[in-house]
Design a protein around this nucleic acid. Structure first.
Lengths: 178, 178
DNA sequence: CTTCCTCCTCTACAGATGTAGAGGACTCTA
DNA sequence: TAGAGTCCTCTACATCTGTAGAGGAGGAAG
């Protein structure tokens, strides 16, 4: 579908150049479409931003569901896949930051791993599941962010490798400890 | 100094409107300076971005030095102060994201809490201080990020209150545990 | 075949943006 | 007081950006 081609190009653009690079014409060029296409589908820039964030949210809805027999392992695998899909994850951070001054985006981005984390914490016998769940989520979020943008540059092992998985798993295990 | 007025205005702008809001003229207006001032001090946009990031780095160099007698408490206080200075911290996240496609910024932003965290982890008797330090840093980073931009909106207690300090401290303590 | 409708491409235009330089005001030095 | 140097303001201009609408290509419906 045309719209998806456009929003996918938008995601790449945002990952590579930041929100500033997201213009109608730049998306046209990036997607190899004739000038004016993006503008036809998303008349205003606000619409374009929302379209791109919706696409992001759609693409990530899949990934979420830990295996109860190997909680840490399955979470580590999900995190690692997000590191591998570097551009998508970078675009998501850009979108989250954008949501700070563009609240409509928040409802699109919810993605809410929070309830899930709370449930998980309850399951694992934390005394204050709400708080533990929030801390756990924060830790994962930080792990990702730190690997991807923080800490200078290539911190930690190369994503997608067994070593990366091992490292992530050990971190997740530590975070899951009551 | 004139330059500081300009870069401070730039920080506010970036926090409120994102990198996209950072234009020479917008900074002039925000700082109440005549049009052209920003352009005189920072001829290119790249220079403007670097100037604003340098200013950010300068302002945060102060805050870093945990009290050995109350490690968790002092770290919690630092984190809380960053939450209170919402705009500066938001601007820093924008800058970090920007550094992804603008590597010169990395050397300015280093801020490197990593060696510190490693040293801390060693001090507290972790078996793999390097890794523990990285995880610890990631956790703090995530805690901040999650509170400020993640998780929908106002997650957790209001920054600056004793309750916020207590919550942060408990989180930090948990993360410090070997 | 004609008519209609949808999807797409192209062109237009006002306003914003990056960048440059001319020249004025002010300060310092002699 | 004259001259030199610095700091600032203003104006200019090519380019980019957001947004709008006119109109064509092609398929569907009659």
């Amino acid at each position: 579908m045309r719209k998806d081609v456009i929003t996918d190009a938008a995601i790449q653009l945002v990952a590579e150049q930041g929100m500033r690079g997201l213009t109608h014409r730049a998306v046209d060029r990036r997607a190899g479409l004739p000038e004016g296409s993006t503008s036809a589908y998303f008349r205003t820039r606000k619409a374009l931003v929302e379209g791109f964030v919706e696409r992001l949210a759609d693409q990530e809805r899949l990934d979420v569901a830990p295996d109860p027999d190997d909680v840490a392992g399955s979470i580590a695998r999900t995190l690692d896949s997000w590191l591998v899909e570097r551009n998508r994850t970078l675009a998501r951070y850009a979108a989250m930051l954008e949501a700070t001054h563009h609240p409509e985006l928040k409802s699109i981005l919810v993605h809410s791993p929070r309830e899930q984390a709370t449930a998980l914490a309850k399951m694992l016998g934390h005394e204050d599941p709400e708080r533990a769940g929030a801390h756990f989520t924060a830790f994962l979020e930080g792990l990702l962010f730190y690997r991807l943008v923080g800490g200078g540059s290539t911190v930690g092992p190369q994503p997608g490798t067994p070593e990366s998985l091992r490292d992530l798993k050990s971190a997740v295990e530590k975070a899951l400890r009551p």
